Computed example of a mutant assay.
Amino acid sequence: MTDAEDGTTRRRGRNETEDERADRMWVELLQEVRVAQMGVQILFGFLLTVVFTSKYDDLRSTDQSIYIFTVVVGAAATGTLIGPVSLHRLVSGRRIKPQAVEWASRLTLVGLVLLLITMASSLLLILRVATHDDSVPWIVTGIVIWYVVCWFVLPLWTRRRYTDTE
C-alpha cells in the first residue's frame, strides 16, 4: 500500500518468519480451543448423567432418540475439539508446525459445528421436555440462527470486510 503523502510503501501485518507465525497461530488456536473444550466438556458431562435419572425412563421415544443423537454428536464434538492437542503432541518436533496449525484449525472448525449441533439438539430436548409447546422448534431455530451469525457469519463478514484484497 502506498502512503499518499510521501510515496513510501507501508507493510501490513507482522514481521515474522513462517515458523514464528506458526508458533503464534498455534498459541492463539490453543486459547480458542480451550474455551470451546470447556463448554463442550461441561455439556457432554451433563448429558452423560441424564440417562441415569428416573426422568429418562419417562421420556417419549422421540425424546430418547434426540437424547441419544445429542450424546453421540457431543462425543464427536468433544473428540474433535481435543484433537488439536493430540495432533500437536504427535507431530511436535517434526518441523511441520505450519501444517499442524492448518489441520488443528480445521479440526477446531469442525468441532465448533459439532458443538453447535450438540447445543441445538440439547436445547431442543430440554425445551420439549420442559414445555411440550409447539413453538419449541421455532425457538431452537432462532437460537441456531443466532449462533450461526455470532460464530460464523460475523467473523466471515469481518474477514471479508477488513482483509486487504490487494
Results as ranks from 00 to 15, higher is better:
T62K: 08
V40Q: 14
W138I: 10
R95K: 08
E102H: 05
A130N: 04
V73W: 00
D133E: 00
R94C: 09
R34W: 07
D58A: 10
S122C: 07
T53N: 04
P155F: 12
T141V: 15
P155E: 06
L90P: 00
L107P: 04
V85D: 02
T158R: 05
Y56V: 02
I143H: 04
A76V: 07
W138L: 08
V153A: 14
L115Q: 09
V101Q: 10
V85L: 14
A120N: 06
S105I: 04
L156C: 13
L112G: 11
T49E: 07
I143E: 06
V85H: 13
E102W: 11
V35D: 09
L43Q: 08
T141W: 02
T70Q: 15
L30A: 06
R106I: 14
V148Q: 00
S61P: 04
G142V: 06
V129C: 03
A100N: 05
P98H: 03
S86W: 11
V144S: 01
T49V: 07
L107V: 01
T62H: 08
S135D: 02
S92T: 11
V148C: 01
V51F: 08
I96E: 11
Q41E: 13
G142Q: 12
T70F: 08
V101P: 11
V40I: 15
V148F: 06
G74C: 01
I96K: 15
I145P: 04
L127E: 07
W138M: 09
V129I: 09
A130H: 00
